[in-house]
């Protein structure tokens, strides 16, 4: 069972890399059109230290942005979930804000707080990723069946008790669903800022320097490194979900 769980994704990745290699080889593309997987080890070994340093910069800023998005998203979701008026007031604002392509916000933020690399990057990672969390929490809370509330309220429990004992745990599966989306979004946010802002840091800046130096294998190597980090963080969320909301998973019968 566990062998299958590991073997299947690994085989899928190998097949993917083989097809990629084949595609480049069949078309005879030079690496400035498309680098092949076989070009990547050289890029990694040459810039190994940069990958570590910049990968870490990207990672921690993404995670911090994500954590702020979680806190803010839960707060906004709670406000909208418990108050109809606040829901009516905030929903159009949030939807409008979310509809703005963040690529257009990035240069504005970069100019607004010029030089504050960490702050800028975290801000964009946060802005791009809190929306699904806020929406999922608010929907989870507002769709709580009244009987759940009544069970505790009829015993004299306060709203806060109902929230901690029932509403919050019941919303966890939706919350983790949203968090999986938010993780990848936060990476996009971080990298947008790293690429756009001058003298940036992180893997985005490494990507940008690959571009300016026409080092095409390096650009592809960055993409793969980003994908790898995305996968790792995603599975961290999956592991947390198993711990805190594992009850929601039905055993196949």
């Amino acid at each position: 069972m566990t062998l299958r769980k590991i073997a299947v994704p690994v085989i899928a990745m190998v097949v993917f890399l083989a097809l990629w290699e084949l595609l480049v080889w069949v078309n005879g593309w030079p690496n400035y059109i498309m680098a092949a997987p076989s070009d990547l080890p050289a890029a990694y070994s040459r810039y190994w230290e940069l990958f570590l340093v910049m990968g870490w910069q990207t990672l921690w800023r993404t995670v911090v942005g994500l954590l702020i998005a979680v806190a803010f998203g839960i707060f906004v979701g709670m406000v909208m979930g418990f108050s109809r008026t606040m829901r009516d007031a905030l929903y159009p604002l949030l939807v409008g804000f979310n509809a703005i392509p963040k690529a257009t916000v990035v240069p504005i933020v970069a100019l607004l707080f010029v030089g504050a690399h960490d702050f800028n990057t975290i801000l964009i990672a946060f802005m791009i990723s809190f929306f699904p969390i806020a929406v999922s929490v608010s929907i989870g809370l507002s769709t709580l069946e009244p009987e759940y509330r009544d069970i505790l309220r009829s015993l004299g429990a306060s709203q806060a008790t109902v929230f901690w004992k029932i509403a919050l745990p019941k919303t966890l599966p939706e919350f983790f669903g949203a968090l999986k989306v938010a993780v990848t979004l936060a990476f996009i946010g971080t990298n947008l800022m790293e690429i756009v802002s001058p003298h940036g840091r992180g893997l985005g800046a490494l990507f940008d320097s690959g571009k300016t130096n026409s080092d095409y294998p390096l650009m592809f190597a960055v993409l793969i490194a980003l994908a790898f980090m995305g996968i790792v963080l995603y599975y961290v969320v999956v592991a947390l979900e198993k711990i805190f909301a594992g009850w929601a998973e039905r055993q196949p019968t």
């Binding site: 069946e145 009987e147 759940y148 009544d150 069970i151 009829s154 015993l155 004992k165 029932i166 745990p169 019941k170 966890l172 909301a245 009850w247 929601a248």
Partner: peptide, 14 residues
């Protein structure tokens, strides 16, 4: 001093 039960058993899954 009141106990309630509904058509929906509303048990907490966790």
């Amino acid at each position: 001093t009141v106990g309630m039960a509904f058509q929906n058993p509303v048990l907490l899954e966790w």
